[in-house]
């Protein structure tokens, strides 16, 4: 009897370990979830900002912008992660992607909602379009290719870029501060040097 108990305990112990490993291996089973579980919430989140638009012309433009934002996978990086996939209550509020690049350092996706302090609320249309077109941020810093694929979006027509801006202006503002990205690339170090040097030159 004692021997039986002992073996049962051992087997139970093994099962617990195996079960735990299996839990880790299969959960979340991303490739077993139906496709619509990914696409439907995204479609709803994309649709939400359009509802509050009154001006008919602006609505048509925003619809166009929605199509571009949707197909360009902006949300994949720019929506924060929740416990069950992307947190669409904070659609496009940034921080969803932290990438480390063997060449360029680490970057964190920015807040694209129209929040005045932490998002793009204080940015002009021209500043946002400049990012899409040339990868130059509002402070004149150049974004190295790969992380933010501006060199793709640069090929959008000016009118399509404008439609994207109109859409982003109507996304629900979320206060979400994103830390500045750390970069150890030569590129960024130089960028700072040049800026400081230019300031110095102007002052004298």
């Amino acid at each position: 009897m004692k021997k039986f108990l002992k073996w049962t305990a051992i087997v139970a112990g093994c099962l617990v370990v195996i079960g735990f490993l299996a839990f880790l291996y299969f959960i979340p089973p991303l490739t077993m979830i139906p496709q619509t579980a990914f696409t439907q919430p995204l479609a709803q989140a994309l649709e939400a900002p359009l509802k509050s638009i009154k001006d008919p012309a602006e609505k048509i433009l925003a619809e166009r912008g929605k199509m571009i934002v949707g197909r360009s996978a902006c949300s994949d990086c720019h929506t924060p992660q929740g416990s069950q996939g992307p947190n669409y209550n904070e659609f496009l509020a940034g921080g969803g992607m932290k990438d480390e690049f063997k060449l360029y350092g680490s970057v964190i996706s920015r807040n694209l909602t129209p929040d005045k302090e932490t998002g793009i609320g204080a940015r002009t249309d021209a500043e946002i379009i400049r990012v899409l077109r040339s990868g130059v941020s509002h402070d004149g810093r150049v974004m190295t290719p790969v992380y933010m694929p501006w060199f793709d979006f640069s090929n959008l027509t000016d009118e399509d870029k404008y439609a994207v801006v109109v859409y982003l202006r109507h996304v629900k503002p979320v206060r979400h501060k994103i830390p500045e990205y750390s970069s150890h690339s030569d590129f960024e170090i130089l960028s700072e040097t040049a800026g400081d040097y230019a300031e110095h030159q102007r002052a004298h």
Binding site: Q35, T39, L42
Partner: peptide, 8 residues
Amino acid sequence: PWTSIAQM
């Protein structure tokens, strides 16, 4: 991002 292309 096939989830995004599905929106097209």
